[in-house]
Design a protein around this nucleic acid. Sequence first.
DNA 1: AGTTTGAGTGTACGTGTGTACTCTCAAAAG
DNA 2: CTTTTGAGAGTACACACGTACACTCAAACT
Lengths: 213, 213
Amino acid sequence: MTETRVERKERTRRAILDATLGLCETQPLAALSLRQVAKEVGIVPTAFYRHFESIEDLGLVLVDESFSSLRDLLRAARTFDTPPPNDRALFHAVADNSVKALVTHVPRAQRHFRFIARERLAGPAPVREAVRHQLELIERELATDIARVPGAGRWTTEDLRILANLLVSAMLTHAEELALAGNRDDVVRRVETTARRQLRMVLIGALGWDSSR
Amino acid sequence: MTETRVERKERTRRAILDATLGLCETQPLAALSLRQVAKEVGIVPTAFYRHFESIEDLGLVLVDESFSSLRDLLRAARTFDTPPPNDRALFHAVADNSVKALVTHVPRAQRHFRFIARERLAGPAPVREAVRHQLELIERELATDIARVPGAGRWTTEDLRILANLLVSAMLTHAEELALAGNRDDVVRRVETTARRQLRMVLIGALGWDSSR
DNA sequence: AGTTTGAGTGTACGTGTGTACTCTCAAAAG
DNA sequence: CTTTTGAGAGTACACACGTACACTCAAACT
C-alpha cells in the first residue's frame, strides 16, 4: 500500500486539476481563488505552488487536457463502419456519424467541453489565446478532411477553411448546450436533431455551392 | 448648472453601468467586485446599493441594454435600399447587407457584444438564462424573416428554426471576433469575408435543401 | 547507515472583500 | 420658511485573499 513519491505527487496534481474542473462548472476560472481550489482538494493553500505557478498556469494545462478529449471525439466522427454508396448518402452518413459522436462523447467529457466553452471567451488572455489556437488547428484538420469528399474539388482552400469554421462554431454551440443540459433526455434529443439537420443543410447545400461564385 | 435630483441619480446609475462594461472587457462579471466598480465610478462602496441590489442584478440590466443594441443591428440588416431582381441576387444582397450591418454596428456597440458573448456562458446562472432567452427570441424573429424569402416555402417551421439557430451562432462568433479585434483593419476584413461567405453558403445551399428529406 | 530532497503543514502579514451602521446636506415637499 | 427625503460619505467589522517563511518527516539517494 506504499506509494512512490512521484505517484503521490501525480495524484495530488490530478486532484487539483479535477477539483478545478468541478469548481469551474459554476464559475469562470477568473473568479476562482487559489484557496478555494486548495480547500476543495484538501491541501493547504501554499502546497498549490508545488504543482502550478498560478491559477492561469493551471488553466493552460486544462486547455490542453480538454482539447485532447475533443480530438478523441473528432477521430470517432471520422471513422465509418461501411463506406456509403453515393454522395447524398455519404453526406447523411457524415452528419449522422458526427452527431452520434457528439452526443456519446460530450457526456463523458462534459466538464472538459464546458471548460473550453466558458474559457474561450471569459478566460484570462493567455488561456483564450490557447483555446483559439487549438480551435484553429481543428478547423484546419476538418478543412483537409472535407477536401477529400466528392464535390469538394471546385472549392478553394479559403472556402474550405470558412466552411470548417462554420461547422466548428456550430458544433461548439451544441456541445455546450449538451454539457449544460446534463442528462435531460429531451434536451439531448432536441440538440441531436438540430445538430444533425444543420450539418445536412450545410453539407448538402455545399453541393450547390461553387467557389468561383 | 444645477441638476435635478432624479437627473443626478440617473447620471451615477449610467456611470455604474458604463464602468462595469469597461471593467468587463478584461474580466468576467463573476470576477468583478462591488468595490472595484465603486472605485471606478468614484463613489463609496455602500452607495452602490442605492442603484442595484447586487452585481448580478446589474448584470441583468446590462443584458437587456446589450440586446437592445443587437436588435438595432438586426433591424439594419433587414432593410434594403433596392429590392434585388432574382433569387440568387437576393441571397447575395441579404448576406452582404447583414455583414455590412455587422461590421458597422459592432465597433459602435463593441462593449455590449463582448459582454453578451462573455456572459452567455460564463455569467451567473440568471444572467446566462436571460441571454439564452433573448437569443431564442432573435432566432424566432429571424426564422419568420427567412420564411418570407423565395424558396423557403418547402421548409418546415422546425427547419427554419434550426437554420436560424445556425446563422445566429455563426454571427455571434463573428461579432465576438470583431469585438476582440478592436480596430485592426486586417482582422476586420478577414472576419467580414468569412461571415459573408458563410452566409452565402448557407443561404444558397438552402435553395437545394428540402425539408421533406 | 546516514544524508538529501521535496510534498505538504502551520503561522503570519498586509490587503481586498461585502455589508451594517451612522452621518451629511442639498433638493423636493409641505 | 420649515420639514422630509434620499444619494452619497465615513467608519467599522469579520472574513477571504495571495504569498512569504520556517517547519516536518518519509521516501529516495549515496
